[in-house]
Measured scan of single mutants.
Amino acid sequence: MSDQEAKPSTEDLGDKKEGEYIKLKVIGQDSSEIHFKVKMTTHLKKLKESYCQRQGVPMNSLRFLFEGQRIADNHTPKELGMEEEDVIEVYQEQTGGHSTV
């Protein structure tokens, strides 16, 4: 019986991991920090939209990076291997420009 009891508790931990929340720091170019608590399985588009709304800027005017890689709207913290207190960097999107060649 103890084996049966242990097995469901392991499964519960697996389920808990799926719905687990982590805190992420979003740091802007001006070094301002906003902290977000997100589920591991939530699409990061929600975090990006919330950040842009707080900053009063359109979402397409900023780019969000985690460990140097651009974050897509459909990425989740779990897919990117994010952990508690990880940092997302935000930069002004640069458009235009010309070749110097």
Rank of each mutant, 00 (worst) to 15 (best):
E93Q: 11
M40V: 13
H35M: 09
R63A: 03
L65S: 01
V87R: 13
K17P: 10
C52I: 00
Y21E: 06
Y21L: 08
A6N: 15
L65T: 13
N74Y: 14
P58M: 00
T76V: 01
T42P: 04
K45D: 09
L80K: 05
G68N: 06
Y51A: 02
V38A: 07
K46N: 09
V38R: 01
V87I: 13
F66K: 01
K78H: 08
K46M: 05
Y91S: 04
S61T: 08
F36D: 04
H35Y: 12
Q53G: 06
E33I: 14
G97T: 05
K46V: 09
G81Y: 00
V57A: 13
T10W: 13
R54M: 06
Q92G: 11
K39H: 07
F66Q: 02
K48S: 01
S9K: 15
M82P: 03
M59V: 14
Q55V: 15
S50P: 05
V26Q: 05
N60V: 06
G56M: 11
K25F: 04
I71A: 01
T76C: 08
S50T: 15
D15V: 12
A72K: 00
E5L: 10
Q92R: 13
A72N: 15
L24W: 01
R70T: 11
A72F: 09
S9W: 08
E89H: 04
H35N: 09
V38N: 01
K7E: 12
V87D: 07
E67W: 10
Y91Q: 07
G14S: 08
E20L: 11
K37Q: 13
T42C: 08
D12T: 03
I22F: 05
D15C: 10
V57C: 05
K7Y: 09
K16V: 10
L24V: 13
K45E: 11
E49P: 00
T10M: 11
K39P: 08
E5Y: 13
G68Q: 12
D30N: 13
I88V: 14
L80G: 01
A6G: 15
Y21S: 11
L24I: 07
R54S: 05
Q69E: 15
K78A: 10
S9L: 10
E67Q: 07
G68C: 04
K39F: 00
M82I: 02
S32F: 06
I88W: 01
G81H: 15
T76R: 03
V38F: 06
T41I: 09
A72Y: 12
L80R: 02
Y51T: 05
N74Q: 08
I22G: 06
T76L: 01
F36L: 03
K48N: 03
V26A: 14
I22L: 07
F64Y: 01
K7F: 08
E11W: 04
M59W: 05
E33N: 06
K37M: 05
K25I: 08
E11L: 14
K7A: 08
E79G: 12
M59P: 11
E49M: 09
G14V: 13
K17I: 08
S9Y: 10
G97I: 00
A6P: 12
K39A: 03
S31C: 09
V57S: 05
L65V: 12
H35E: 07
G19T: 15
K23A: 09
M40W: 00
Y51E: 03
E18V: 10
G81R: 07
H43W: 05
R63K: 06
G19Q: 10
Y91W: 10
L13F: 11
I88G: 04
P77W: 00
K17V: 15
Q92M: 14
L44P: 03
V57Y: 14
F36M: 00
N60W: 08
E49R: 14
L13W: 10
A6V: 14
E83A: 14
M40F: 05
L13D: 13
Y51C: 03
Q69S: 12
V90H: 05
E83G: 13
Y21I: 09
D12F: 10
K37I: 02
Y51D: 04
K23N: 09
G97L: 07
S50V: 13
E85D: 13
S32Y: 05
E79I: 06
Q94I: 08
I22M: 12
Q4L: 14
D30V: 03
I22R: 07
D73S: 00
K17W: 10
I27S: 04
R70V: 12
E93W: 14
I34G: 02
S31T: 08
S50D: 07
I22W: 01
F66N: 05
K7S: 09
M82R: 04
Q55N: 09
L13P: 09
E85M: 15
K16Q: 09
E85K: 15
Y91F: 10
L24G: 03
G19D: 11
L47W: 02
V90F: 05
Y21A: 07
V26I: 08
K46G: 02
E83Y: 12
E20S: 14
Q69H: 07
H35S: 08
K23G: 06
T95N: 06
M59L: 07
Y91G: 05
Y91A: 07
Y91E: 07
S61Y: 14
K37G: 04
E5C: 00
L47N: 03
G96C: 05
P8F: 12
L62S: 04
A72G: 14
T95H: 05
E89I: 13
T95L: 13
N60T: 05
H75A: 10
I34T: 09
Q53F: 15
N74S: 14
I88N: 02
V38E: 01
Y51H: 02
I71S: 03
V90N: 02
D3T: 15
H75L: 06
E11V: 11
I34R: 06
R54N: 01
C52S: 10
G96F: 04
I22A: 03
E84P: 14
Q53W: 15
E83P: 00
K25E: 04
G28Y: 00
S2M: 11
E85P: 00
I71H: 00
K17Y: 10
Q55E: 12
Q92H: 09
G14Q: 13
Q53Y: 15
M82K: 02
V38L: 12
M82W: 03
M82A: 04
S31Y: 15
E67C: 11
K39N: 08
E85G: 15
L62Q: 15
H75F: 05
Q55S: 12
D12H: 11
I88M: 06
G96P: 09
V57Q: 06
S2Y: 12
L62D: 03
M40S: 11
A6E: 08
E67N: 13
M82Q: 01
M82S: 04
R70N: 12
L65E: 02
G14R: 11
G14L: 14
S9D: 14
Y21N: 09
T42Y: 00
E49D: 07
I71E: 02
H75K: 06
V38Q: 02
A6W: 13
C52N: 02
Y51I: 06
G68F: 01
Q4A: 11
C52T: 02
E49T: 01
K37Y: 00
Y21C: 13
C52K: 00
D3N: 09
V38T: 12
S61A: 09
E18S: 11
K7T: 11
G97D: 03
N60K: 06
E84L: 05
S61P: 02
E67P: 04
N60E: 15
D3A: 09
L62V: 15
T41G: 08
G68W: 04
H43L: 12
Q4P: 10
Q29E: 00
E20V: 11
E5T: 13
V38S: 01
F36H: 02
T41N: 04
K45M: 08
N74R: 14
Y51F: 10
E84G: 13
D86E: 10
R54I: 07
L47E: 03
G97F: 07
K48V: 02
K16E: 11
E67K: 05
K25C: 04
V87N: 09
D30Y: 05
Y21W: 11
R54C: 09
Q53L: 11
F64Q: 07
E20R: 14
V57R: 15
T41P: 07
I27R: 04
K39V: 00
K48M: 06
H75C: 11
Q92F: 03
I34N: 03
K39G: 15
K16N: 11
